[in-house]
Simulated scan of single mutants.
Amino acid sequence: MKAFDHVYSTDPRTNYLQELAGKLQVPVINNGIQLPAAIGNGFVKELIIEEGFFVRYYYFTLNHDLKFRWVTDSDRNEAMFKLLLDMELTNSGDDAEFIDQVSMDRSAILYTTDFDRTVLIKKGQQVSRLVLMFSKNWLEENYSEASEKIITTVNLLVQQNKPTFIAENMDEGQYLFAKELVTEMKQDHFPLIHVKTKSLILINSFLNRVVCRSSNDVNFTHCLHHNEIKKVEDRIKEYLDKPLPNLQVLAAEFNMSPATLQRHFKMVYGKSIYHYYLEKKLELGKTMIAAKSKSISEIAYTLGYNRINSFSKAFKKQYGVLPSDMSIYRASL
């Protein structure tokens, strides 16, 4: 798999497009670059609207999988924010947390750029991503009358090493409005005032929805579908003594795509659904071993393992000892 590394300098607002153009060995024309045919088809455009606020638009497909990595600059003092709106990206392939995948099902996601992140883009995926990027100073100057909740949100977002994702679904009206904006940005020439006006309206709409939230909703584990993900966890616990349904079945039960379910589950619990399920299953097995009410083979069967060797292997991988050695292990502690 090919990869491009992007290291944010002290001013990512002016260096990103030039860096990308240099790596791809293409010129910057009309505030954008065209992808070389060897890599794919499409373009990346960037417009500086005003000091501290600019718009970036990605529209392309790739000939092969590409992994983009961004590494933060610890010396950069001013906090920067990104509001991402995915317009028509089709998911394909494995699922992962937000920073490992690029499909967000028409959601708008606000996050800080003060953490290292990776985006995997699959071969043949149609990427149409609108990014509104702005500084903390710009946000405060332009939303000085905003409620204390927005300021609280901003303060949460800028805490180093604790990246917060604030996600909202775009309703049909917002989605169509964003489509109008990207349609203009696909043109070689367009009125800058149109882009600026539409961008400000989209940001205002997003922040207004954040204001309407309960204060408890703004935290480091918040993500789209948070309440549904809690229900998924409860459902998973019902299967600790039997095989877990496949991801497609589980996703359909909660009216999500498999990728959305997996991605947001990992955002909340820090691991994939299967690894969470296995961890809880083995945790239950450990508790049953400690209770000494059943033999190891009975416990393995109770937990849905057809072979005791499979249970023993998984148990040792998780805890470092075989189930049969647990009593010896506890005695040595």
Rank of each mutant, 00 (worst) to 15 (best):
E140M: 15
L207W: 12
T302Q: 12
V182P: 04
Q18K: 14
F190P: 00
L130Q: 05
Y59E: 09
K316G: 03
K292H: 10
G124C: 02
K179L: 13
R129T: 15
R13H: 07
H225Q: 05
S215Q: 11
P245C: 06
L261P: 10
L120M: 12
K136E: 15
G320N: 04
S272F: 11
G124Y: 07
L110W: 03
D105T: 06
I273C: 01
G52R: 08
M133V: 09
D325N: 14
V158K: 08
G304H: 00
Q159C: 01
L284S: 07
S293R: 11
K123T: 07
L62Y: 02
F220E: 11
D116F: 05
M87H: 14
M256G: 08
Q126K: 15
K231F: 02
I296M: 11
L284V: 05
K162S: 05
A3K: 14
L47H: 09
L284R: 14
F190R: 03
F206G: 10
E97A: 13
Q25L: 10
Q174R: 06
E168F: 08
T164H: 05
N227H: 07
K23G: 02
K45M: 06
S199Y: 03
M256D: 10
C223E: 12
N219K: 06
G124P: 13
D11L: 04
E50A: 09
K317W: 00
T197D: 09
I296V: 15
L202F: 13
F53R: 01
M1N: 09
T113K: 07
G124T: 09
F177S: 04
Q248M: 07
L35C: 06
L110F: 09
E279K: 11
R117Q: 11
L176S: 09
I121E: 03
Q25Y: 09
E148L: 10
S199T: 08
L132S: 14
R213C: 10
G93Y: 02
I328N: 11
A37D: 13
C212K: 15
I229D: 02
T61L: 00
F177L: 10
Y301N: 11
F206K: 05
R263Q: 13
L84W: 08
S324P: 04
M87V: 14
V154D: 01
K317R: 13
R69T: 15
F165R: 03
V131Q: 07
G270L: 08
V158Y: 00
T112P: 15
E88D: 15
P258A: 01
F265D: 04
I201L: 14
N91F: 10
N91R: 12
T113P: 12
Y16E: 03
S257Q: 13
L17N: 03
H226N: 13
K67F: 00
S257K: 15
T302V: 03
V55Q: 00
K149H: 13
P323R: 06
T260S: 13
M1A: 08
N30E: 13
G32H: 08
L156Q: 08
N219D: 10
F134S: 00
N246V: 13
T113V: 05
Y57A: 04
L176R: 12
E253K: 05
I150L: 05
T197L: 03
V28C: 07
F311M: 06
S135D: 09
D95W: 12
F265Q: 02
Y269A: 01
L139S: 12
V210F: 12
